[in-house]
Design a protein around this nucleic acid. Structure first.
Length: 568
RNA sequence: GCCCUCUUAGCUCAGGGGAUAGAGCGUCUGCCUCCGGAGCAGAAGGCCGUAGGUUCGAAUCCUACAGAGGGCGCCA
């Protein structure tokens, strides 16, 4: 719809130039927007005000010259010049009614846009250390990353979801030592947990599993040997758990990328990816040595200070692995765009990572989204989310309590750069007031109408019913009620919302849209009788409206990763 | 100390150069002989943190200040 209006305005500008009413060196690209006040029309453009100076005439006069050429098109009901020089355009019922047919024809492809032009984008998110359960912030980032991936796919990108497993390093060692300590305690040895060891009950559970599977013989081995063995078992157990929880909320990754593979030499004996990543930076002249360490000159790309890649003791920093990781993403796997979602506590890390990506030869191709934390409350009291404290509330527990749909929707409803206060007690109490139910209810209500119209109250799939119930050639011109036209306008907006959400990496625009659409539907439903044997033509057309609304709700909910129930 | 983000209705938040600033919740008032009332209609509620600036126009952009959160290791 936007494209249609844009080309109408462009043509009108050209026509006004051709007939000499305006004089401009070049035709500006018209900016279109929806006026805040609906009485001003469906679309509005400010081209006249923007070009007034160049054209050497008052904006209102220029606007009138353009408006005269827009008027008359069958899709346009009226064109008016208003205020300081806005051109306000109102669509004809015909143009709005056509949306219903378009939705029913395109079905789940409705609202697709070609912003991505098939470019390959990777979204990396969650990437929790595999040393314990997910906290609630991870759940939020999972919802965000997954929904963003869905939105980008709908916007014409080829998308992959990736989870980076930090399965190398100090945290893993502490984790293994913690499990080993619990194992020894189970066997009656007086062993202390490591200083900063993990204290969650799950550590005991893993230790118990190891004990029952492998018996007590590991108590007699060397501690280093024991810990190395336990590390592998415990790590796999946690990873399986993470996959399971994520899957339960509808998040499935295409790639689980192990940090270890960056450290290991290639099978053919060539250097590890970390070494190759550093070599790449060195090749380009951004690596130097100082005080026994190897440094990356990130200041050449705007970072505050240079960063260490190889410590004086010869080991690699986490950053070195990340350089190699991103080298792999761009060079080995050829992504055009990479989006990393990191926790708020990593935001100081962004400049050096972007610097590294630029130095590797891919400037501007990395975007980092800083996922803000979730402040969890239970009955008004703050619940700490540190992995070290024994009594954290895990994301899994939250999922069990409030359900995947409500959790996801709640997380996605806020913009990503805002911290979120989530009171578990409140979320449970007010679950009926949660806006996700409002949207899902609209969908279920529609399905109920369709079942009723088909006289098949037990039919499992209302969408299939609609297929047979409503002909392709149904006459939509009888749909002229204000509530109907308002609903059509909202249906027509989907592609704009998808594009805006994809551009801004902002799935929360879709929750807002979903609620607005549900409102438009409920208003329509209140005013317009759908099933009416006295008026078969109107009834048939309204069933098409209802079905189109159902389809768009299904699309939006799918983009959010929330279910679209047929009954509730 | 330096850097980043945030500050909009009683509460939780949208809006990120355009016309009279929006939604949900909460508070009041109405609407079920009829397709799902988990719904609809209406009312009340605002110096868009403060002060300057940029321009035809600022909640939106810039600067300073005040509050809130986060970040500043050869940690991960």
């Amino acid at each position: 719809m936007q494209d249609l209006i844009a080309s109408l305005v462009r043509d009108a500008l050209s026509a006004a130039l051709a007939d000499g009413r305006i004089d401009l060196a070049e035709v500006p690209e018209p900016e279109l927007e929806h006026p805040r006040d609906p009485s001003h029309g469906d679309w509005s453009t400010n081209v006249a005000m923007r070009s007034a100076r160049a054209a050497g005439m008052p904006p209102r006069q220029l606007a009138q010259a353009v408006a005269d050429h827009v008027a008359g098109h069958p899709d346009i009901a009226s064109v008016e010049v208003a205020g300081p020089g806005f051109i306000n355009i109102r669509l004809s019922p015909r143009a709005l009614q056509r949306v219903v047919a378009e939705v029913r024809e395109q079905r789940l492809d409705y609202g697709r846009v070609d912003l991505g032009c098939g470019r390959r984008v990777q979204v990396e998110f969650v990437s929790a250390n595999p040393v314990g359960p997910m906290h609630v912030g991870h759940g939020r980032w999972a919802a965000l990353g997954d929904s963003l991936a869905r939105v980008l796919a709908h916007a014409g990108y080829q998308v992959e979801r990736e989870f980076y497993i930090n399965d190398q390093g100090v945290q893993m060692d502490i984790f293994a030592a913690s499990v080993a300590a619990r194992y020894m305690q189970l066997l009656g040895y007086e062993v202390e947990l490591p200083e900063d060891g993990y204290r969650g009950a799950y550590i005991n559970e893993i230790a118990e599993e190891i004990l029952s599977a492998e018996g007590p013989s590991w108590a007699g081995r060397e501690p280093t040997e024991r810990e190395a063995h336990f590390k592998e078992i415990a790590y796999r157990a946690v990873l399986e758990h993470l996959k399971h929880v994520l899957h339960d909320m509808g998040v499935d990754f295409d790639v689980w990328f192990s940090e270890r593979t960056l450290h290991e030499p290639s099978p053919d004996g060539s250097p590890s990816e970390i070494e190759r990543g550093i070599a790449r930076l060195r090749e380009r002249g951004y690596v130097y040595e100082n005080e026994g360490a190897v440094w990356f000159r990130s200041t050449a790309f705007g970072d505050d200070k240079d960063r260490v890649l190889v410590k004086a003791d010869g080991t690699y920093t986490y950053f070195a692995a990340d350089v190699a990781y991103h080298w792999d993403k761009f060079h080995e796997r050829g992504f055009d765009l990479v989006i990393d979602i990191w926790g708020a506590d990593h935001h100081g890390y962004v400049p050096r990572m972007k610097a590294a990506v630029a130095a590797l030869g891919y400037p501007g191709q990395l975007d980092v989204i800083i996922g803000q934390l979730v402040n969890l409350f239970r009955n008004g009291e703050v619940v700490r989310m540190s992995k070290r404290t024994g009594e954290m509330v895990t994301f899994e527990e939250l999922l069990d309590e409030v359900g995947a749909d409500a959790a996801r929707y709640f997380f996605l409803r806020r913009s990503t750069d805002q911290p979120l206060d989530f009171d578990i007690g409140l979320a449970k109490e007010q679950s009926a007031d949660n806006p996700v139910y409002y949207v899902q209810y609209a969908h279920a209500r529609i399905c109920s109408i369709l079942r009723k119209a088909a006289a098949q109250p037990d039919a499992p799939d209302a969408g299939a019913l609609a297929e047979t119930l409503i002909g392709k050639d149904v006459d939509l011109s009888v749909l002229t009620d204000d509530a109907e036209l308002a609903l059509f306008r909202k249906l027509a907006e989907l592609s704009e919302v998808v594009e805006a959400a994809a551009r801004a990496y902002a799935p929360h625009k879709l929750t807002r849209y979903a609620e607005e659409l549900a409102t438009c539907f409920h208003q329509f439903y209140t005013v317009c009788r759908v099933i009416d044997p006295e008026a078969p033509a109107l009834s048939a057309a309204r069933l098409a409206v209802v079905d189109a609304t159902r389809i768009v709700l299904e699309v939006v909910l799918a983009l959010l990763g929330v279910s679209a129930p047929q009954r509730m």
